[in-house]
Nucleic acid binder design. Structure first.
Lengths: 189, 189
DNA sequence: TGCATTTACCTAATAGCTTTAGGCAAGTGG
DNA sequence: CCACTTGCCTAAAGCTATTAGGTAAATGCA
């Protein structure tokens, strides 16, 4: 009997692919076993539980997204940086909807602490350094950016913008324009 | 044997309560049957499927949220309206996290068409009438508002803002201030 | 190379959720 | 008061999650 060569790593990556194909909430230990043509119980040597699998996929997605965002950000500043970062988010969500959902999976505190979540916040702070905000405004602004990016991307993914003109791309550019202007014209009344 | 008096309505409402207690993704036909002290199969005379149940809860949540938002909006305009509407969203999400998640449940096109989703968009347009935007700006702005509200509320619900200062309420007020200013100072460079 | 150990995957079993088919008794209308 | 509708039930099949314990493949060491 030839062994399948399962490892936690491979299972996690395959789980991420599965998520993109069938949706994160459809990712199941059984489906993953089928994909490797292996019995379900066999996965339990590599994964603690179904939750464990989902958590690992979430952590993978957060890493990937942080890496992509970091690459997009390299060498840019100001609106250029803002746009590059935002596009990295949106592109990732469009190319990897299951992984993007995974990145929104609620992690337990220890997993969250070990995640790339901190890098995401750091990068937003870096972007805001190109604008002139003092505390606590910059924290507020980090939260606003996070809200807009996540909100837009998830509404778009849910099909919220697909059945009306103008198209989603246009509103996205408009939104980034407005955000940039808001951050530059500071403070305004 | 005394009958339990099940109806689709009652099941949907109980499902919504269940969602708030244990999370929308934990809402299950079995759990609902337990709550009514009735056998699982009995629910299938009132519900087509587990999906059907979730869809009904989603529609209920969208209605409730639209009603609350409409009430909050009544007699207000400008920033006052913006704040009242946004607070209605946020308060609903905080008081009814399961229902709020339900309202984000992806509906099939027919369910979506029959939902209160349209009212939500209409109300945002009504708010924007207090600012001076022409098409396509007002559509872009509707999308931005939706993104910010949903994004903020869902990040807050996920605990994203709970472990750092300043507190979430402050950032929320700041955000609404900024949005209002952005919409008033129009256009800006 | 040959044996011992580890490890990868398996069978078997339990338990929960979903869904369908068919039955009986409680309520309802003529 | 009898016929009918309808509400809830039992039974059963299929899928997922998870654990316990077994066997064969890979690995390490003499």
């Amino acid at each position: 009997m030839v062994r399948a060569g399962l490892t936690t790593e491979r299972l996690t990556r395959a789980g991420a692919e599965l998520a993109d194909e069938v949706g994160f909430d459809q990712v199941t230990v059984s489906a993953l076993a089928r994909r490797f043509d292996v019995k379900v119980a066999s996965l339990y040597s590599h994964l603690k539980s179904s939750q464990d699998l989902r958590t690992r996929i979430a952590l993978l997605a957060l890493e990937e997204l942080a890496d992509l965002a970091a690459a997009a950000l390299a060498g840019r500043a100001g609106k250029d940086a803002l746009t590059a970062f935002a596009d990295a988010y949106r592109d990732y969500a469009r190319e990897h909807p299951g992984r993007y959902d995974a990145a929104r999976y609620r992690l337990d505190p220890e997993a969250a602490a070990a995640s790339a979540g901190g890098r995401h916040a750091q990068m937003m702070r870096a972007i805001l350094r190109g604008y002139d905000l003092a505390e606590p405004d910059s924290t507020h602004a980090v939260r606003l950016l996070g809200s807009v990016f996540h909100g837009y991307v998830s509404l778009e993914a849910a099909g919220g913008f697909s059945h009306s003109a103008p198209d989603a791309q246009e509103s996205w550019e408009w939104t980034l324009d407005r955000l940039d202007a808001m951050l530059r014209n500071w403070p305004m009344r």
